[in-house]
Simulated assay, not measured.
Amino acid sequence: MKSLFITLFVVLFISCNDDDSAPKDFRAANEQEIVDYIANNGLDATRSNTGLYYIIDEEGEGAEITASSDVSVRYKGYYTNGTILDQNTDNGISINLQQVIPGWTEGLQYFREGGSGMLLIPSHLAYGSNNYNGVPGGSVLIFDIEVIDWDVENKEEILDYASSNNLNATESDTGLFYVIDEPGTGAQPLESSNVTVAYKGYFTDDTVFDESDADGISFNLNGVIPGWTEGIQYFKEGGSGILLVPSSLAYGRFGSQSIPGGAVLIFDVNLKSVN
């Protein structure tokens, strides 16, 4: 079962249940089940007006989260008996909070990016009273969650990479890191310039995801990722170096094709010409 809850749930209570029986009211039973779980596990949880229980281990120091936010989350979901429902504890998942179960839409707003804790979700804020795609009707769901702050994690990843590879990188105000091996002596590009650049792009594990030939490729600087629009302007014609690009200046939390969400990208670049 993979990322089961990443669905719009307005249909849960109308037409997507596994049976057509009248909905049962599990609220009282769910409340007792959650209260017992909290007591048995020595947890200090807060109850909201909706019946959601939550525990804040770390509130987080990143961006605030609203009901319409895009967020990236590492999580483990399980039942009160400990059986795992679903989990993604590596790169996590990136979602919009309007597209998940109500318990997530509400619960994640108690955190900021970088925060972590637990959500204990009664069935009326999860999958409802009937069976749904393998989840028994009336189930209480528990999620250990970590809201990813990509700005912080990407910067740490870049600094670790630079240190491990003896790079003397400069950080700009946007969070881009760059290394100038050769500044170049020709024309210096502007944000709107058409340029020709030879490059190799790879991840911090040195896996290459894209590479030009020695002649490079031509493009307008205002039509590429922000890390390139900014970074290539630090060179003149004939210049070469390295761009270490955080995901906020590349493909963001959702990624693109072969680029995972939240990925740091590194480019060896050689500015062949400003056209």
Rank of each mutant, 00 (worst) to 15 (best):
D20G: 12
G261H: 02
F235N: 09
T66F: 11
E58R: 11
G128C: 10
F5C: 11
F267C: 03
G252S: 03
H124C: 05
D18R: 09
D173Y: 02
L125R: 01
V135C: 06
Y75I: 11
N270V: 12
A214T: 11
A250M: 05
M1Q: 07
D181I: 08
A29V: 13
I14K: 12
Y202G: 05
V208G: 08
I6V: 14
P23I: 12
L85R: 06
G138W: 00
V274E: 06
I217L: 13
G62C: 05
T66I: 05
F177G: 09
T229D: 07
V264D: 07
K155E: 15
A214R: 01
N166I: 01
Y37D: 11
D57I: 04
R112T: 13
V224I: 10
I266H: 09
G231T: 03
N81G: 02
N133V: 13
E182W: 02
Q32T: 14
S21I: 09
I34F: 09
T174K: 04
A67G: 10
A214P: 00
L159F: 00
E211S: 14
P246F: 05
S256C: 04
L176T: 04
G134T: 08
K2V: 15
G115F: 07
Y199P: 03
D144T: 04
V147E: 02
R74H: 02
T50L: 14
T83I: 07
S218W: 04
Q188A: 15
Q98S: 11
G107D: 08
S192V: 12
D160M: 01
D25T: 04
V10N: 09
Y202N: 05
G252V: 07
F26V: 12
